[in-house]
């Protein structure tokens, strides 16, 4: 069952007179529950691909089916709803709102979804519990360590129980130990069924994924697949 299906996807950026082909004819199918890592040199289009999968960006050309539904043609409001319900994001820079506590940061997707207050509390609590952050619930981000902040971000990304979790360099701002913890958490989420896509520079981390994509110049160069390698 294909969760993510990209068909002939291009993403061009116009910079003055020049056109940068950040993504160049990407064809990619990721099945539900897969664990995929994306590696490649800087500027090869990894983040662009992830943003496109996460509906933060639109393809210049091509089709994108999410869970069988064509999402390329959705309007802003419908795309926002897909982001809210079906996709979780984890960023290198955590992106926690500094004035909000850990619990309030985690609550944000539920607030945006219009979940009533009394239903939000138990869900936030469960998410905090799952990340082992209960006693940090009322701490502001600047009172948390990097690893804790990224765990808050993961709790926030998963509180709405999305089917897909996208992580762009999730360990990039962390030391090795915290980075390992974060990867462990992501992998355990994947074991529980979430479709996980991780962009990373770290070949140790990238190597842990069952499926490993290597990008170069906006193309998928190699696609190491558990069912036998394929070359794109």
């Amino acid at each position: 069952m294909a969760m993510i299906e990209l068909q002939g996807v291009h993403r061009d950026f116009r910079v003055g007179e020049q056109t940068v082909h950040a993504l160049d004819d990407i064809n990619l199918t990721i099945r539900a529950g897969e664990y995929v890592s994306i590696m490649g040199p800087s500027g090869s289009g990894k983040s662009t691909l992830l943003n496109l999968i996460g509906l933060l960006d639109r393809a210049t050309r091509g089709r994108y089916l999410l869970d069988g539904q064509d999402v390329t043609t959705l309007d802003d409001v419908a795309q926002a709803e897909v982001r809210n319900r079906r996709i979780g994001f984890v960023f290198q820079a955590f992106h926690l709102v500094p004035r909000l506590t850990a619990a309030q940061n985690i609550e944000l997707p539920l607030i945006l979804a219009g979940v009533p207050r009394e239903q939000r509390e138990p869900r936030v609590r469960r998410a905090l519990e799952a990340m082992n952050l209960l006693e940090r619930a009322h701490h502001k981000p600047d009172q948390l360590s990097g690893g804790q902040r990224q765990r808050v971000a993961i709790a926030r990304a998963t509180v709405n129980e999305p089917r897909v979790l996208l992580a762009d360099e999730p360990t990039g701002n962390l030391d090795r130990k915290s980075g390992r913890d974060v990867i462990d958490i992501l992998e355990s989420l994947n074991r529980h069924g979430i479709t996980l896509v991780v962009v990373t520079h770290d070949s140790d981390i990238g190597g842990r994924a069952r499926r490993r994509l290597h990008m170069l110049d906006g193309r998928i160069e190699t696609d190491h697949h558990p069912d036998g390698d394929r070359h794109a």
């Binding site: 933060l56 802003d76 409001v77 926002a80 897909v82 982001r83 809210n84 992106h95 944000l108 945006l112």
Partner: peptide, 12 residues
Amino acid sequence: GLLKALGAAPRQ
């Protein structure tokens, strides 16, 4: 940007 990533529509 974060709010948008978390699913806030422009109107929100």
